[in-house]
Structure formats: C-alpha cells, structure tokens
Design a protein around this nucleic acid. Structure first.
Length: 959
RNA sequence: GCGGGGGUAGCCAAGCCUGGUCAAAGGCGCAGGACUGAGGCUCCUGUCCCGUAGGGGUUCGUGGGUUCAAAUCCCACCCCCCGCACCA
C-alpha cells in the first residue's frame, strides 16, 4: 500500500519528521496556540486532488503559523458515517458490473479484494489505511496521536456523539416530526440523487389539495396556485380513467386511482369504492371560499398519474385550462356524449390577477399568440412557466378575490392555502415535478417519513445567536460571510437521523442512526482529548456523560467524577486543561460546497453546546477543483487520486500546482502542464542551492543591497497574504516573485555571487517551507543547516535592510534598458555603441521644481514647469514643453513607489551609478557604452541627444 | 426560482474594494537568440496594431452613464459556474 513519490527525497523527510515527532502538539502554558483543522473526508474512495487542495492550504497555514512561533495543533480523522458505502456494497453484491469497474479501474482496488468489498466496514477501513499513507506522503504536518474515525465501530467516537445528542436534546434543539422524501416502493428506502436512473436533482414539491364539494364527498384537486381559486370556471377530470372514493383527512375524497395509492404513503387513506369518470362528468361541484357551483368536464390534459388526477380550471390565467376549453369545444363527439354543448358555451374566463404586460386574460393571450388548439400541445408547458413566473413575481389579485384583493400573488398563495386547510376544505399533497426512477428501475413516489428526528435549525433564537457570532468571526474571504448569513436565514429543520448505513445510534431511540452531516459538527473538540484514549491513558468506557460534561463544559465536581468514572482526578483535570488550552478552533479550512451545510451546522452546534469563548474563531473557504477546466467526476474519467498525483509529480509539485491554481472562492484548475512546470521549478531551486553552496561569496555591492531590500518587501507581502489565507498570492510571490529577483541579481552580478546571495537563499528557503516543505528541507540541508527548516523562525522583514535608493537605482537601470531596447527594436539592428547622457547639474533642479509644483497644484504644474524651464534657460521654447511633459510623466511613474527624498538622492548620483553599471550594460547589449554628463566638455553627441537628458531619465544615443 | 461566485489579451490568471502610475503582474503556449555533440533543462528577447529613436492607435462580456480621467464607480442587459437537504 506504500506509495512512491516521484521526488526522491520526499520519503526521507517524511520519515525524519515522524521520527523527531515535530508535529506532535501538547499544551505549552504561556505559548500562544493555533488550532487548525480541515473537515474529515468520507472513506468511500481514495482521496483525490480536490481534497489535496483544501488540505494543502490547511497545511501551508499550519506550517506558516508554526514557524511564526505558535503552538500549532493540526489533527486528523476519518468519516465513516453514512449510507453511500452500504449502497455501493449492495450494488456490488447484486453483481453490478459498473461498480466493479469503477473500483478496479478508477479507485485502484486489487481485484482479489473485491469479494470483501461487499462489507461496508471492510471498505471504510481499507480506504482509511490507504488514505492515511496518502496524507503522510503529502507532507501534512499532522499530530497523528489524535487520529480517530467515526461511528459506533470506534471505541469512543460514539460516546462523544451520544453526549452531544443528549446535550442537544436536553437543551430542546431536537424535535420530532414528519418529512417528505423521494421513496422507492421496491427498495423500501429513500432514493437519493445518486441512486437514480432518471430525475437527478428532483425533489418533492408541496401541492395544495382543494376540496370541491360533490354530494357528501369532495373532489380533491391538486394545485401549486391555490390563490387562483377565485377564477375557477370548471373542473377537469380524465374521462378514460377510473377514480376512487377514499376516506382521508377526515372526509371522503375523490381522486384518481393512482393518486390514492400515492397519498397512502403520505397520509392515512382508506379506499371505499371505484367511481367511473362518467359518473362525474357533466355534474356540478361546489367551490370552496366562493361557494360557486361549477361543472365537471372531461379533458386529456389531465394526467391521472400526476397529482390527484383532478384539476380545477382557471382559463384566464392557466394556458392548459384555456386550451382545454378550446379542445373540448372542438371535440363534438365528447360534447354530444356528455351533452355539454350549452354548458361549455357558457364558460367564460374570469380574470383575477392584474399583471404588467398582459391584459385581462394572460393565458388566453399566450394561447392565441402561439395558435394552440389542443390541450396536449407541448408548447403549453412553456406558456405556463412564463405566466406562472410573471404572475408570481408581479401579479396582484383583483377586487373579485374577497379578503385577498389587493394582495400580491406570492402573499395570497400561502394565505389561501392556510385558510383552506383551516376550514377543512384543503389539504397537502407532495408530488414530484418530474419522474424519478430508482436505480432498481422502479418509479419512485413521495413518502412522508413519520417520527423523524429533527435538529431545530429553524429556532429563531438559535439562528440569531449563530448570526451574531458569524458577524464576529474571521471569515476568509470576506464574501463568504454574506453567504453564511444567508444560509442561516434560509435553513430549515434538518432530519438528523437515518435508518440505514453506518453511524452512531441515537441514545434515546436506537432504531435511528445519527446522520452523516449531524455527527460531524463539534468533533474538533474530541481532538483535544483523543490523545488520552489513543495512548491508553483512559479507557473508552470511562468517557461517560459526566466526564464529558466536566471536560467540555466545566460542569460537576472533578473529585466525584473521578471516583465515579475511575479516571484519576489529575488526568481528568489535565484533559479539561487541554481542552481549555486548544479550544476554540482558530481556523477551519474547507471547500465552499460545505458552506450551506457542514460549516453552518458546525457553527450552530458549537453555539448550542459550548460556552461563547469556545465558539469557532475562523473559517477559510476555498473553491472546488476542476481538472483541465472541467468538473472532476468518476464518470467523466478525469478523476485524479491524490496518490496518483504524488506518484507522477511528487507531493511538493502537487502542492505547488494546487496552491498556485486559485485562492478565495475561485475554483482552482488542475492542469498537467502546470504540474510539470511546478516539478521543474523544484529542480531549479535545488540547483540554485547547489550553485550557491559551491560559490564563495565575498563582495558586497549595491546589487546585494538591492537584493536584501527587495527581499524584505516580499516578506511583508507574503506574510500579510498568508494571514488572510491568500495562499496563491503568497506562494506565487514566494516562488516566482523571489525567483525573478534572484534571476535579476545573477544577471546583474554576472554570476559572481555577493555576500547577500547566501543570506537571501537562506530566507527564501524558509519562506518556501510552508508551501513545499520537502524541497525546503532538502535545500536547507544542502545549505549546510542543521535541524528542520519546518521549525525555523518565519522571517520577519528588517526595516534597516530596506534600501529605497538601491531599489530606485535598479528600477532606473531597468527603465534605461527598456528604452534602449525599444529604440534598437525600431531601428532593426543590434547596437554597436550606446551613449548615455545624464542631465546636467543645473537641470537636476528641474526634479525638485517639478516635485514642488506637483504637490502645490497638480493641474497647472505642467504649464508652470514649462515657464520655469524657459526662464531658467534649461531649454528653449521649442523643447521645453516636451521635456517638461516627460519630466512630469517620469515623476508620476516613480512617486507612487518612492519617497521624494529618495528621488532627489538618487538623481544626485546618477552619473556615478551608470558608470558602475557600464560593464553590465556592455555585457547585456554586447556594445560599447559611453556615459557623459550633458554639460561635460567634449562629449560625443552627433544627434544632439544630450539635451533630452532629464533627471532620472537619461538621454540616449545609439549607433 | 432562491442564494453565492464570475466574464480581462492564444490559454490560465492578477488587477477592480481604495479611479490616473494599465497595453494591463505572473505562469503556460508560440517565435527568435544564448548554452549543448544533440535533445531536455536553464538563461535572454519578443508575442493587440502601426512606427528606421525611447512614440502613436485600439482594447479588459454588451450597451449606456458619472468624471478632466474607468478594466476599476453607477445603471440596464447578455452569458457561464456552484449550492438548494436523505450523496457527503
């Protein structure tokens, strides 16, 4: 199971770290701590590069904080809770070939183990073993003494969950209720998205049943728009199907046969007798609320398989209904059969909703516009959607709607529904908007699960507390905060227990298992004490309610709890202390898909159970990984296990690729090309170390000053990016930013390394350590350093090494080179001779003057500068405007970065600096370089370029 | 539908909050050159258009607006991605 990294030295360092136990964290009183964690992953598959992204960010942050001197706890665990593994095992047992194929080809499971993969416990254990190796190979700086997995298969995890749920129940956060699910009648279980052949993403919708009095019974019509009851003109039923009389909801109802069967799964239903459609058609029923008597008509638009099989007709606002009227009028045979001629003629649409953009009868308009004459025309679907959405958002009920007149459609909808139910003239029916077919081939229905346990996330007080806390947390990036607040607002009660799969039983109702997202909320607290159990200091059985209440809530008397539980009082107190030391979690890092569920639940549960001082302090959210621009999925065949990436590119190259891909909420994109490039860069780093070690560096030049100065600036930038979890910015600067500085330095010195080189490299390696720790360790040892770079002090910028003059000089040199290049490029031929003219001493005053004028009145500065130049005889009337403009532009590009004093300083010694750089320039351009001051005697100036010299912007002549 | 994020040069991706210093960082790709026995690696240069002197022109989803000045601010529109509960 051991995996082999593509980078030879990685395994060595992983072993050394483990031997030295450098990531094991124990409380150190007085030393500031940081508790960092990432959500544990479900053990039904190998970890993939997407996991790797979040993990690497977490690890980089952990390593950064550790180097900054914090006592960092970064623990690990595995999620076994859930139903997915059991589902896969079932399918494998049934001989599903696609499962076999996926396991072998994508997940890399050895064929000979497949027989054992019918056992969920074996599967989760198998992946845990495999993934542990992957996490270790990735170089994550974990304290492995605290590891655990979930479910009652673990000796103490369920003790913890039982404590959590008893606590929640005692506090009133758990309730019992009913709950609609998509249900497969054959499998006798809920049909989740991944268990479907058709209907992905479809969830139950709530329809209102409206009861129309018919003799001593009621026709129950299902609708999404109960407010349209005021515009009803007739009822539709399907003439070719049987209806049934049922006893339900305390009365007799008439629905289609199929509907009766569906309703059975939702409410108590007793079927009394069959009623042929013919017995209903042509008769009248009474509309609730209005008391109007309306006729019952036949229509093909009615699908007895959908809803209740009874539809009430609102031709003014429902295109299907208007089309139904037209179709019926045109169907002479039916009219004759049921003798409906006059009745149908008398039907007139009743307008009840005012909506901008339409007249009296929106449905009539749409149907006529499209020229629809059949009530089964597929275009009716589109027309219905258009009007539904328009009326819902902009519609207002007219004066003929009783007490609802003047209300918006969206308001009236719920009010009418509630009123009908209250009066006993309405009910609820759940229905699927599209067919959902279970993987077993059976069509599913909506079932109401009774006695379902809920977490009461709807509780307003609970919500309020959570929101208040979210406002005070550190959330990166900031945009995520708004999202969290929104999720809290919209969160409803959560069905927190299941009947199947792995997990922990509800302590008060062992028929139920705590569901996967509900047993994974406060477990970071378990990390603070799991060490004691894993090391055998206490036994799992001793972890009873009182013990946990004491450790986590400080409740009870330790002496009594000690004698009751058999845990030494000293140990008990130590565990309490350890919890108090590490908690709260300072930073939890996760992908954004967990914002609407896990991360929000995580806050909810902490708020419910712990003291405010132990509520989560920070959350970092990141995007979701794509592969070569596409969503990663096993079915697409672009699934990349993390293990594989390590084997191909090595852990550090994988880490680098991931870190450079994105930050904040942006989705990172894994590209093979980038991974290979990252791999290259690591070699470059190693080579640089080798070169520096073998060089003897003595000189200390101005370029050395520059190198150290720019390093200090980069340190500042990288540090502040890391503090905000901007790992991409930080690593990009650390890797490429500093690399470019290094290249410039080598170029400037012509490869003769100065004193700064070694110092720079030393700091550079430290800065790289959180991101590519293996390579950093390797470099560190190559540099002859002892100990681990992982434990070195994070470099702090030293103000005294910042040298603005040196930085400006290098910038001027780069500008000069760019200008020379720009000229030669236009010229078309490489230069033979380059002449540089530095401005005269007198002209240097221009700089001071320009600065002065600019700060006084920026708008008039240019004009005044021109006048001043002419007055001071620095240029004639022809040239002064051009030069002045240039001066101002040059200044503008430099003032944002440099102090005025620096500009003046450097301008003072410009000539000297270019002289020093002559050799470099000659090398760069392979040409003779001459440097003059413009006011020097006997200068070589065939094209009169000396006069174009300005301070900080020399004149150039090229041959 | 509700909510969140986004549309920048051949590609990926910074910049946008705090308007000018932006033809717009960095990486990839491509072209030329150096190095090499050769290739790879590495290094240098170029990579919107025009230009025999450091210049000019047109660009940052579309259309308007604010401003002396907009990739950056405001309005409208178009398009893309993600989440929405029994998958974790």
């Amino acid at each position: 199971m051991k995996l082999k990294s593509a980078i030879a030295y990685e395994e060595k360092w992983a072993e050394k770290w483990a031997e030295a136990k450098i990531f094991e964290a124990d409380p150190k009183p007085g030393k500031p701590k940081i508790f960092i964690c990432v959500p544990y992953s479900y053990q039904n598959a190998p970890l993939h590069v997407g996991h790797g992204f979040t993990y690497t960010r977490g690890d980089a942050y952990a390593r950064f904080k550790r180097m900054q001197g914090y006592n960092v706890l970064f623990p690990w665990a595995w999620h076994w809770t859930g139903e997915a593994v059991a589902g896969t095992c079932e399918r494998l047992k049934r001989g599903d070939q696609s499962v076999r194929k996926m396991l072998v080809e994508i997940d890399g499971v050895p064929e000979e183990l497949l027989d054992k993969f019918t056992d969920p416990v074996f599967v989760t254990r198998y992946y845990t073993e495999e993934n542990r190796e992957t996490v270790k190979a990735m170089g994550l700086s974990i304290d492995w003494r605290r590891e655990f997995h979930t479910t009652d298969l673990h000796p103490y995890y369920s003790k913890f969950i039982e404590w959590q749920y008893i606590t929640l129940k005692n506090k009133g956060y758990i309730t019992k209720g009913r709950h609609p699910v998509v249900w497969c009648p054959r499998c006798k279980s809920p049909t989740g998205d991944h268990d479907r052949l058709a209907g992905e993403g479809v969830s139950p919708e709530e329809y209102t049943l409206v009861y129309f009095k018919f003799g001593d019974a009621y026709l129950a019509a299902a609708t999404l728009r109960p407010e349209t009851i005021f515009g009803v003109t007739n009822i539709w039923i399907n003439p070719n199907h049987e209806y049934v009389l049922i006893r339900a909801d305390g009365k007799k109802l008439i629905v289609s046969e199929q509907a009766a069967y569906k309703l059975k799964n939702q409410i108590k239903v007793e079927i009394l007798k069959k009623i042929p459609a013919d017995e209903l058609i042509g008769k009248f029923a009474e509309t609730p609320l209005t008391g109007k008597h309306i006729p019952i008509f036949p229509a093909d638009l009615v699908d007895p398989d959908f809803g209740s099989g009874v539809v009430y007709s609102v031709p003014a606002h429902a295109p299907y209904d208007y089309a139904g009227i037209i179709a019926l009028k045109n169907n002479q045979e039916r009219i004759r059969k049921y003798q409906l001629k006059e009745l149908v003629e008398s039907i007139k649409p009743i307008s009840i909703i005012r909506v901008p953009g339409y007249g009296e009868f929106p449905a009539v308009e749409e149907v006529e516009r499209l020229g629809i004459t059949s009530d089964t025309d597929p275009r009716l679907e589109e027309a219905t959607k258009t009007i539904y959405s328009k009326e819902f958002h902009e519609g207002v009920l007219k004066d003929n709607c009783g007490e609802y007149s003047g209300k918006t459609v969206s308001e009236a909808r719920d009010l009418v529904k509630e009123k009908l139910i209250e009066m006993g003239l309405g009910g609820v029916m759940w229905e699927l908007p599209e067919k959902v077919i279970c993987r077993c081939g059976t069509e599913t229905i909506v079932k109401i699960v009774e006695d379902q346990w809920f977490l009461k996330y709807s509780d307003p007080e609970w919500k309020e507390k959570v929101k208040e806390h979210i406002k005070n947390m550190n959330i990166y990036p900031e945009e995520a905060r708004r999202w969290f607040l929104n999720v809290v607002d919209w969160l409803r009660d959560w069905a927190c227990a299941r009947k199947t799969g792995l997990g922990t039983k509800l302590p008060w109702d062992p028929d139920w298992i705590v569901e996967t997202l509900s047993d994974s909320t406060i477990y970071p607290a378990l990390y603070t004490i799991s060490k004691y159990l894993n090391l055998g200091i206490i036994k799992p059985d001793q972890l009873n309610i009182d013990v946990l209440n004491y450790i986590y809530l400080g409740a009870g008397d330790p002496e009594k709890i000690s004698s009751q539980s058999g845990i030494k009082e000293e140990i008990l107190k130590q565990m309490r202390e350890e919890f108090l030391y590490w908690y709260p979690v300072d930073m939890r890092i996760s992908a954004k898909e967990l914002v609407p569920n896990h991360l929000t639940f995580y806050i909810f549960h902490h708020v419910a159970i712990f003291e405010p001082r132990h509520w989560p302090r920070g959350i970092g959210v990141n995007g979701m990984l794509k592969i070569e621009g596409e969503k990663m999925s096993k079915s697409k065949g672009n699934f990349i296990p993390l293990k594989k990436a390590i084997e191909i590119y090595g852990a550090d190259a994988t880490r680098a690729t991931l870190l450079l891909a994105a930050e904040d909420l942006d989705d990172p994109d894994w590209r093979d090309k980038n991974a290979r490039e990252a791999r290259n860069m690591l070699d470059v780093l190693i080579r640089i170390c080798r070169d520096v070690v073998s060089a003897n560096s003595n000189d200390y030049t101005r370029v050395d000053e520059w190198l150290l100065s720019t390093l200090q600036r980069k340190m500042k930038k990288i540090t502040s990016a890391m503090e905000k979890l901007k790992t991409r910015t930080a690593f990009n600067e650390a890797l490429y930013g500093l690399y470019n500085d290094w290249k410039w330095y080598i170029r400037r010195t012509g490869g003769r390394l100065g004193k700064a080189a070694e110092k720079f490299l030393e700091e550079w390696v430290k800065i790289l350590a959180p991101f590519i720790p293996f390579t950093a360790e390797e470099c560190w040892s190559m540099l002859g350093k002892s100990g681990f770079v992982s434990l070195e002090k994070w470099p702090e910028p030293r103000e005294e090494l910042i040298n603005e003059d040196a930085e400006l000089r290098e910038d001027l040199l780069k500008n000069l080179m760019e200008d020379i290049r720009s000229i030669t490029e236009v010229y078309g031929k490489p230069p033979k001779k380059i002449v540089i003219y530095v401005s005269s001493k007198k002209k240097r005053e221009l700089l001071g003057k320009a600065i002065e004028l600019k700060s006084l009145e920026s708008k008039a500065a240019l004009g005044n500068l021109i006048k001043w130049m002419i007055a001071e005889k620095l240029a004639d009337k022809k040239k002064a405007p051009t030069l002045a403009k240039l001066m101002v532009d040059t200044l503008a590009s430099l003032t944002s970065k440099y102090k005025e004093k620096t500009l003046l300083n450097v301008a003072e010694n410009e000539l000297e600096f270019y002289e020093e750089s002559r050799e470099f320039l000659e090398r760069e351009f392979n040409a003779n370089v001459e440097i003059y001051s413009e006011d020097q005697e006997n200068i070589y100036d065939p094209r009169n370029k000396a006069s174009t010299a300005l301070p900080l912007r020399p004149g150039i002549y090229i041959e």
